[in-house]
């Protein structure tokens, strides 16, 4: 375990020096503040406190931003070592490939956690500034925080897998962006189109919920929406997914990091230096 921790602290230091930590924090905070400013005006009609409304907006934001940040941090993990020529030496050390990946993942998760805490924290501070009742939204905020970390972990794992498959940082970055577009943007559009065409048929009732659960980003959105009444206001695809119980969405959100990490390990094991 000292090996993984040693690797994690080195990776974190590298991320600090390459300004990755600063970039991720700035990105999260900027978007969170813009959203909470935009969302703070009309609260009364929903009957919800302003923090709950902020959490609803943050959920929609996180669905896009957290996977992107995860993939951006991860794409270099294996491909970068291959390109720099540092991988052969690393692989002769008495440390398993799983530990090597774990060390990198710990550093990247720490970076993400820091950025989320600062970003969500400032949005929450803004909500408290305008609404003394905002404390009612705290449980939803905490839930959003840890489920965002799980979502980030899933995409970190997917990013490592892409990095190992591509073996070149440029190609890995391309794959990562492509995958983000497909899973986060096109997937929902495709599902919506299919639901509209199906007009309440078998697809909508039996296939569609499973397809939503299969995508970690959709499962994340459903989990946070289903857990909080107020967030229904911000529903997109989620509106059609009201039938999916929160625990199923949570199971998907919690299982995906494991699946993604297993995929990453499989791909990494195939890399011969």
């Amino acid at each position: 375990m000292t090996a993984a921790l040693g690797l994690a602290s080195c990776e974190f230091r590298i991320a600090l020096r390459n300004r990755w930590v600063a970039i991720v924090i700035a990105m999260m905070t900027l978007f969170a503040l813009v959203l909470s400013a935009a969302g703070s005006a009309p609260t009364g009609e929903l009957g919800a406190d302003s923090l709950s409304v902020t959490v609803a907006s943050l959920t929609s934001l996180a669905v896009y931003l957290v996977p992107l940040v995860g993939l951006l941090m991860a794409f270099d993990a294996v491909a970068g070592e291959v390109e720099r020529g540092t991988l052969p030496l690393l692989l002769t050390y008495p440390v398993s490939r799983a530990r090597l990946l774990l060390g990198k993942a710990l550093a990247h998760l720490a970076t993400l956690a820091l950025a989320l805490a600062i970003g969500y924290g400032s949005a929450a501070a803004a909500a408290f500034a305008v609404d003394p009742e905002a404390a009612g939204g705290l449980p939803a905020l905490v839930r959003l925080f840890w489920s965002s970390l799980l979502l980030g972990a899933s995409f970190l794992g997917i990013g490592y897998a892409l990095s190992a498959i591509a073996r070149r940082p440029g190609a890995a970055a391309g794959l990562a962006i492509g995958l983000w577009l497909v899973l986060i943007v096109l997937y929902d559009l495709g599902l919506l189109a299919a639901v509209v065409a199906d007009a309440g048929g078998v697809f909508t009732t039996h296939v569609f919920p499973w397809l939503l659960l299969a995508n970690p980003a959709d499962a994340f959105r459903i989990f946070n929406l289903a857990s909080s009444e107020a967030t229904a206001a911000a529903a997109g695809v989620g509106g059609a997914a009201g039938s999916i119980p929160a625990w199923q969405a949570l199971a998907s959100v919690a299982l995906w990091p494991l699946v993604a990490f297993a995929l990453a390990l499989l791909a990494f094991r195939k890399v011969t230096p």
């Binding site: 080195c10 590298i14 020096r17 540092t86």
Partner: peptide, 23 residues
């Protein structure tokens, strides 16, 4: 390795500390 390469952002001491911890 032939043409030993290391992470350019780390200092010699930090890189060595990592290798030590890996062992």
């Amino acid at each position: 390795p032939e043409n030993a390469a290391f992470h350019p952002s780390l200092t010699g001491e930090e890189q060595m500390a990592l290798y030590l911890r890996l062992r």
